[in-house]
Amino acid sequence: MFTALEVFTTMVVGLMVGVEFSVAFVVNRILDALPGDNGQLGRAHGGRMLGAVMPFWYIGSLVLCAVWAVAGWGDPGTGLVVVAAALLVVSVVMSLLLLVPINNRSKTWTPENRPDDWKEQANRWDRFHYVRVAVIIAAFTLLAAALA
């Protein structure tokens, strides 16, 4: 049962990394290349859709890491899981303080009501997101190492 928890936790965090990586380096690049207002409309829709799902995914990943750390306390690799959980805490705090406020504004924007600095706000979100992706990649790497 413990092995299943380890594998499931690693898989859940790995899938989250994949989604967030693709948003950062694929989806947003595609949206930014669309003509007219389509990119901004796509980002707003993505903000609504992923903004509804990702909080559960981030918190769920953190809870799974905490359960793994407690259940495996004293086992080799538990220190890696604890550090991975700490990195996931950092990603949640970053999200709440830096990314969510921008996302909450941008998900309501249309070409008619968006602010003049909408591109600067989107670029700021992207920069924060790159850092968050690096943090969760590090957490995933530590979980994979602990699993091995």
Rank of each mutant, 00 (worst) to 15 (best):
M1P: 09
M1R: 15
M1W: 06
F2Q: 11
V7T: 14
V7C: 05
F8C: 07
F8L: 12
T10A: 08
M11C: 11
V12L: 13
G14I: 01
L15C: 10
L15R: 10
M16H: 10
M16Y: 10
G18Q: 06
V19R: 05
V19A: 12
E20N: 15
S22R: 08
S22L: 12
V23D: 02
V23S: 05
V23A: 13
V23H: 11
F25G: 14
V26Q: 09
V26P: 00
V26L: 13
V27G: 08
V27C: 09
V27M: 14
I30N: 12
I30C: 12
D32T: 05
A33D: 14
L34W: 02
L34C: 08
L34Y: 02
P35N: 10
D37T: 08
D37Y: 01
N38K: 12
Q40E: 13
L41S: 12
L41W: 03
G42K: 03
R43A: 09
H45D: 05
H45T: 09
G47T: 01
G47D: 14
G47L: 07
R48F: 09
R48W: 12
M49T: 08
L50T: 07
L50K: 08
A52S: 13
V53G: 06
V53H: 05
V53R: 13
M54L: 13
F56W: 12
W57S: 10
Y58R: 15
Y58C: 03
V63M: 13
V63Y: 15
V63R: 15
L64E: 07
V67K: 04
V70Y: 15
A71F: 08
G72H: 05
G72S: 11
W73I: 05
G74P: 06
P76G: 13
G77I: 01
G77Q: 02
T78Q: 15
G79I: 01
G79L: 03
L80G: 11
L80K: 07
V81Q: 01
V82F: 04
V83N: 02
A84G: 02
A84Y: 02
A84T: 00
A86G: 12
L87F: 11
V89E: 03
V90S: 05
S91I: 04
V92L: 15
V92E: 06
V92A: 11
M94P: 00
M94C: 05
M94R: 13
S95P: 03
L97M: 13
L98P: 00
V100L: 15
V100N: 09
P101S: 04
I102W: 08
R105D: 15
K107M: 15
T108V: 10
T110Y: 06
P111N: 10
E112Q: 13
N113H: 07
P115E: 12
D116G: 10
D117I: 04
D117S: 06
W118R: 07
K119L: 13
E120A: 15
E120P: 00
Q121W: 07
A122S: 15
A122T: 06
A122Q: 14
N123E: 14
R124F: 06
D126M: 09
D126G: 09
F128Q: 08
H129E: 05
Y130M: 12
R132P: 00
A134P: 00
A134G: 15
A134T: 04
A134Y: 03
A134M: 10
V135I: 11
V135R: 04
I136G: 01
A138H: 00
A138G: 01
A139K: 01
A139Q: 04
A139G: 06
A139N: 02
F140T: 09
F140M: 08
T141D: 07
L142W: 00
L143S: 00
A145Y: 06
A146T: 00
